[in-house]
Simulated scan of single mutants.
Amino acid sequence: MQHPERRLLISVDMERYSRRSNLQQYEAQRYFRELLHEAADTVGLDRVAWTTQQAGDGELAIVPREVSESRVIGKFVPELNRRLRSHNSSRLPVARIRLRVAVHQGLVHLDGANGFPGNAVVFVCRLCEADPVKKALAAFPEAGVALVVSTEIFRDVVSEYPEEMRPERFLRIEVAHPDKEFREHAWLCVVDEDLSGVSVPGVVPPDGEGSAQAVEESADNGEAEAANRAADHGGIRTGDIRVKGQNAIGHGATAIGSLGRDTNFGTGRGNPR
């Protein structure tokens, strides 16, 4: 086993590939490869030197060490989007090629027996399969590429070159695959489109209020406020109850509730603390 290498990883997946007929899949694969090669050649990238793992509806690409991340994200992806839009403009929707592109970097073994072992490979593929990325691309029928990048790529590349990358067009999202125990943040954009007015699942606002934890805390706070209102109007206010003594609450047991009192169950008396 050779030592792993730190590389830039690109996962590309074609939208609605499985819904095509055999002939349509055949044609889509051909145009997919042609468009990728043409876009790379236009911006000075040699795709022949890329290490790739092919799938019918996409590919995983491991980029040579000497290739600049900013060239891939700031030049190659926009050129690919431009060519896809041009290609699709004269075709029926069923024949159009639209891509989800994910970019990440990390350690990868290039000598795997049946692929490229490495958590970074798994990570970039999870990003490409994410539901928010699919929904964002679907929201713009004329778009060519939905791009999702890892937090590291956004921080080190996208945000450092704002004139090329336009970081203000990216939304922070939560990528979740519960069945695969995967939950991570990433950054999403649809190239040359404005996502600000589109409802995309999993969006995390800058203050973090959209995260799963914040949503759960908000629900807890809402329950507490409802309890407070009930108490203010003569109702019963409940809160966290800590039981003193017996495990079961029965006659003579004491519980401390959010009212700040000790209540003796079965006696009808509440003792101020």
Rank of each mutant, 00 (worst) to 15 (best):
E142N: 13
L45Q: 06
A136Y: 04
V72S: 01
R6T: 07
A139P: 02
P272H: 11
F76E: 00
Y17D: 04
K75G: 03
A231N: 06
E217Q: 05
E27C: 07
G112K: 08
V72T: 03
N81V: 01
A146L: 04
D220I: 00
N264S: 11
T267H: 14
V204N: 05
E164A: 14
G118K: 01
I153F: 03
G197E: 12
C125N: 12
P201V: 08
R269T: 12
S21Y: 09
C189E: 09
K135G: 01
Q105V: 04
R16I: 01
P93V: 12
T254P: 00
V145W: 03
V157R: 01
G115F: 08
R7H: 10
P78E: 04
N264D: 11
I10R: 03
V133C: 08
A226Q: 08
N119E: 12
P178S: 09
S90G: 09
I173S: 04
V149C: 10
A28H: 10
A230Q: 11
I241M: 15
A146H: 03
H185S: 10
R33V: 11
L171I: 03
A143G: 09
R91W: 10
R96P: 05
H104W: 03
V198G: 01
G210P: 02
A186G: 14
R273Y: 07
Y26L: 15
V190L: 02
M14V: 15
R229G: 00
V198M: 07
A120Y: 02
P178R: 10
E217L: 01
N114V: 10
I10D: 02
G257L: 11
Q54I: 11
S90E: 15
K135F: 03
S18T: 15
V158C: 05
I10Q: 07
V101H: 03
R98P: 01
E59T: 12
T42A: 15
F182S: 07
C128Y: 00
E209P: 00
E174V: 09
E66L: 06
W187M: 09
A176G: 00
